[in-house]
Each structure stands twice: as structure tokens, then as C-alpha cells.
Simulated scan of single mutants.
Amino acid sequence: MTFVTKLTFESGDRAVLDDVVTDLKQLLERKGAECKGPHSSPPERLSVPQYRTLERGREFSSWSYTVYTRRLEIHGADQIARSVAERSFPDSVHVELEIEQKKPLGHRQN
């Protein structure tokens, strides 16, 4: 059975995000891991209201920011995927990791 490690990176700093993902992609290619991506999602623009007091009605202008997302998939290469999961990333980059088990075609469950 093969494992697929899915990594999702999010950040408000697009340059740092792109550097992290590019460096990781190059590392995976040097190690010989099968890697798909990076795949980009459209930037998400978020807005957060800011209140002057605890009472509603008196507001500062909303705080707006953009979140950028990139996704990578590592197929097989469990040891390499484990080392990536243990790696430290900049504080400005949020990383989510999902591991999925793929069964070969024609495989029957008992």
C-alpha cells in the first residue's frame, strides 16, 4: 500500500510562502520523491471588524488581509515525508499535513 502525504501551506506573506514551497519542492526532487504540485488556490481576501469599545457601533475601519495557499502531494517516500513533517517552517506560514493510504487497483477489502 502506498501513502500519499498532502501538505497545505497558507500565509499572508506570499514571498515567504513561495520560498518555502519552492525550497521544499527542490528538496523532494533531489531526494527522488514523487511530488505533485505546488498547486495554488486563488488568494482569499479576509476582513475583520475592529471595535473601539466592547459595545457595537463604534468601529475603526476593518482590518483586511490576503491569505495565499499552496498544496503539495508526496507519493510514497514515507521516510522523506516523515522528515518533511518534522521540519520547522517560518511562523508566518501555517502548515497542515494529511496522510492518505492508497490501495492498489483491484484490491478487495475483507
Rank of each mutant, 00 (worst) to 15 (best):
L97T: 04
L24H: 02
S62P: 06
H39R: 11
D91E: 15
E100P: 00
S40C: 05
K25I: 08
R14F: 07
T53G: 13
H107F: 14
F89G: 11
R45G: 09
L105R: 06
G57A: 09
D19S: 08
E73D: 03
G106R: 02
L17D: 00
R56G: 15
T22S: 08
H94M: 08
R30S: 06
L28H: 06
V4C: 07
L24M: 05
S61Q: 13
V67H: 01
R71F: 07
E100M: 04
R45W: 05
D23E: 05
S64Q: 08
V20D: 00
Q50E: 07
I99P: 00
D23L: 03
L28R: 03
R45T: 04
V84L: 08
S64R: 02
R108A: 03
Q109F: 03
R30H: 04
R108G: 01
V48H: 04
E86C: 11
V48Q: 12
R52E: 07
E100S: 15
S62Y: 02
G32W: 09
S40H: 04
E100F: 12
F60G: 09
T53W: 10
R56D: 14
T22L: 10
A85N: 02
I74D: 00
D23F: 01
R52W: 04
Y51W: 11
L27R: 14
P43T: 04
P49G: 08
L28M: 06
P43K: 04
G57E: 15
T66I: 09
E86R: 11
L46T: 02
H75G: 02
H75W: 12
E10C: 05
L105T: 14
S88V: 14
P90V: 09
T53F: 05
R14E: 15
F89S: 10
V93C: 13
L17G: 00
L27W: 09
K31S: 13
A15V: 15
L72D: 00
E55H: 03
T66E: 14
D91H: 14
P104Y: 08
V21S: 01
D91R: 09
A15Y: 10
S83C: 06
L24P: 01
V20S: 00
Y65K: 02
L46Y: 10
L17N: 00
V95S: 04
P90G: 05
T22R: 14
E10A: 12
V93D: 04
I74H: 00
V4T: 11
L17Q: 01
P43F: 07
K31C: 07
V16S: 03
H39V: 06
L97M: 11
S83W: 04
A33M: 11
A85V: 05
V67R: 01
L97N: 02
G76D: 01
V95R: 10
C35S: 10
L27Y: 08
M1W: 07
K102R: 06
R82Y: 13
L17M: 07
T2Y: 06
T5E: 00
R82N: 15
T69D: 02
D91M: 15
D23P: 03
P42V: 06
R82V: 14
L72M: 05
